[in-house]
Amino acid sequence: MAQRITRDEVVHVARLACLTLTEEEVDRFTQQLGAILLHAADIESLDVIGVEPTAHPLPLCNVMRADVVERSLNPDAVLAQAPEVRDGQFLVPPVLGDQP
């Protein structure tokens, strides 16, 4: 059985997803994601030439509301849910000097 996803790829994907995995989790996810992707081989090998993709079940177009001022959520109630707030704004640790 060909390996569907490597350990290195799992580590890379975890970094993209902002997750830190333990060594044991990397092993487990490599095996489990591999099994799921192996199952998905039936669509990977499918001939879909000429088939248009469907991203959404409804034929959608942009929906605009009337350009009228409305009452929105109370800013204090919204900010009350934030882990840290200062002067009506969300507070985060330093961004500059951050690791890429």
Binding site: L37, A40, I43, L46, V51, P53, T54
Partner: peptide, 11 residues
């Protein structure tokens, strides 16, 4: 994967 899956949706 994703592109193919969307086409399966059409099918």
């Amino acid at each position: 994967f994703y592109g193919k899956a969307l086409k399966v949706r059409t099918m």
